[in-house]
């Protein structure tokens, strides 16, 4: 089992690899229905999370709705 170095929400993180985006969400205990995912600045739609494999150095943004005006 190798390790992947990613930048998730601006912070460097090491996760077990190989991994898909869905694996990453599971690793972070996030429900895929409650987050929107951007991989290297491109949105990855929910149905594709399980088939999108992460690569060393990938930048991932995980966002959701918060309070705002």
């Amino acid at each position: 089992m190798s390790e992947l170095r990613l930048v998730v929400n601006g912070e460097e993180r090491r996760v077990p690899g190989p991994a898909t985006l869905l694996d990453l969400l599971a690793h972070l205990s996030l429900d895929p229905r409650t987050v929107v995912v951007e991989l290297n600045r491109e949105i990855v739609r929910r149905p594709r999370l399980g088939e999108t494999t992460l690569a060393e150095g990938d930048s991932v943004e995980l966002v959701h709705f918060v309070g705002g005006g």
Binding site: N9, V63, H64, G68
Partner: peptide, 28 residues
């Protein structure tokens, strides 16, 4: 209205706003 922000990966802050407001009841 709601805003888009990064999920807090360390869970030190609170949940997203949809934890409190139903998207079925309100138009987001």
């Amino acid at each position: 209205t709601v805003a888009v922000r990064r999920v807090d990966l360390d869970r030190t802050r609170e949940e997203g706003v949809l934890h409190h407001l139903s998207p079925e009841r309100y138009f987001l």
